[in-house]
Design a protein around this nucleic acid. Structure first.
Lengths: 338, 338
DNA sequence: TTGTAGGCGTTATCAA
DNA sequence: TTGATAACGCCTACAA
């Protein structure tokens, strides 16, 4: 292995001068710079990151805690973040967690082990934050969930307004003339996102003078095709005269559609469905899935900008709302009441 | 920051004894072990990876080079690998590359920077391997592509037989009575996988006494919905009497189906489609997509096993073929020739 | 079974 | 503008 010492010996300069050249510092003569760079190229030398970071006690890395492996929205956001980070000198350390895992506990572990300069949480549960977040001392951004009610000086958030978005989804169903509406969502005792969206649902029910009975019209489903399928089976069994469903993710919605078709029910003729997230998949599915679109590019870019603002410019935390959008598809039937 | 010295001081033992306990070595008295572990827990101490790896000059990590961000098969494989690696003391360093990027060049960079103990290539181009792979000196496994014709003593492979699998896909279309068959695949001058699958197609054409005219029946499409959509538009334009399409990935196939529907063509009534990869998506799509299923769990598990065999047991490279499987769906119409 | 000391490759401090 | 030297936190001979 070729080290900085080899470069020093070969170029005739000292280790310190080589280090200075490597780090693009100005207090080096052009002459030395040029000679050393030539040797570096010749030996194809790349500094040892471990040594560098041991000395500097940081790793120029950003940790990303992703809650839910099958969550396509998060996959898109990660992809987007990856693309942006590539252009910088930072590296990304991505950790995939279970939908219901304790992300803050994991984050604390990650910080100990990898010393990232900042953290991005894709999804998060405020309970965990309140309980343990004091143990995290690097700048963080909570993405897709709001964190404005928690006053941590190192926690920003970039989120969609889940209550309003879910309410909008259910409003769409009511407006299309549906009254027997079911919900397919996460475990709202564990997932704050699911809880918020559930609130949106119940708001919509209330606004339309309907009674929201979670026992009857809510069924648990994780964010996967398979779980959506099984959740829909249970929902249609306990709520047979259902005419419309709001699924809290596109993936869940698609699993649900398949379950309905396998029972001989058509979408949207027999049952209407609206999803959530607005992933590319929704657009390409048959029927094209009506959904609430979260602007994932925007969520990604703002998260990174805010995080860098906190890391490099020591800015104050910001709590930002990124607008959602209803995207119609072919999965909702309008019922004419006569 | 709490270091091994703090633990030593606090526990009354020396740094080396603490180190021994940390590394689960046997030459420590139960007494010392217990006391030290208590202090470690109390202080929530986690060793500094940089220091550890600097000394050991490796990072107990496995690099994964993923060619193609939107490739759902690769995503499934990565997920599976992640799950298996979690149980070991290794960590994963995942690099996402463009479909047509030079993965070997990137791998060499990664090795310099991160010193992984082994490398997994999800997708790869033999040209790049032949040209530069000699520069990689850690054990590697090429996944989904064969590497048996290249004799590197540190390169194994676990693959689906792309030629046979693609041939099978086109055979299925011929057997269903189709003759005007189009192909939607990658750039076969750059992607070896695409090239192999193209060969399988042409074999099938030959076996059925048909002329394979790539200019007419082949259209380029990357492994994304969007690209499948546009590729299909071009294909149907230049080959208007087409009745069946083999798309070299499920994602491409779904993009293609949407393009056809947007032109008022139905699948499978007007045009039949078969995909490739056998991702969960194919199963949940409407119509359920006929596809060639690659056993991604098996590809993942064998890759890891073989890689660990090379790393830890210094085994010889292996070139393994994992069988594929035709999975029927609702996207192929059988034409009765009368 | 335990402790001492040296070194892994780099950067930072200070002196020249 | 340069160079010598001391860290960074950990592991590992080797000695006790």
């Amino acid at each position: 292995m070729v080290t900085i010492k080899d470069i020093a010996r070969e170029s005739g300069y000292s280790v310190s001068t080589v280090s200075r050249v490597l780090n693009h510092r100005s207090d080096v003569s052009p002459d030395a710079k040029q000679k050393i760079e030539a040797v570096v190229t010749k030996f194809n030398f790349v500094p040892n990151n471990n040594a560098k970071h041991l000395k500097q006690n940081n790793s120029k890395s950003i940790g990303v805690m992703v809650k839910g492996i099958s969550n396509m929205l998060f996959a898109s956001i990660v992809e987007e973040i990856q693309r942006m980070i590539e252009k910088t000198e930072y590296t990304l350390v991505v950790s995939y967690l279970d939908e219901d895992a304790d992300e803050v506990e994991q984050a604390i572990l990650l910080c100990r082990e990898r010393k990232p300069l900042g953290l991005l949480f894709l999804g998060g549960n405020p309970d965990y934050f309140k309980k343990e977040f004091a143990g995290v001392d690097v700048p963080c951004v909570l993405v897709t969930n709001r964190a404005n009610q928690m006053e941590f000086r190192n926690l920003s958030s970039v989120a969609t307004d889940d209550v309003a978005a879910a309410r909008r989804a259910v409003d769409v169903l009511f407006d299309a003339g549906h009254e027997k509406i079911g919900i397919l969502g996460g475990d709202f005792t564990k997932s704050y996102t699911s809880y918020q969206r559930l609130r949106g649902c119940s708001d919509s029910f209330a606004a339309h003078g309907a009674v929201f009975d979670a026992d009857r019209c809510y069924e648990k489903a994780r964010f996967s095709f398979d779980s959506g399928y099984r959740g829909m089976e249970r929902l249609v069994t306990k709520f047979p005269d259902i005419t419309a469903v709001f699924a809290m993710s596109d993936v869940t919605a698609i699993g649900a559609i398949r379950a309905l078709r396998d029972r001989g029910l058509r979408v949207p003729e027999d049952i209407s469905i609206i999803g959530f997230d607005g992933t590319t998949l929704a657009e390409y599915y048959n029927p094209k899935l009506a959904t609430i679109k979260q602007q994932y590019q925007r969520l990604a870019s703002r998260s990174i900008e805010i995080l860098f603002g906190q890391i490099e410019l020591k800015k104050e935390p910001i709590h930002e709302i990124v607008p959602f959008e209803f995207v119609n598809g072919e999965s909702i039937r309008v019922i004419e009441h006569g």
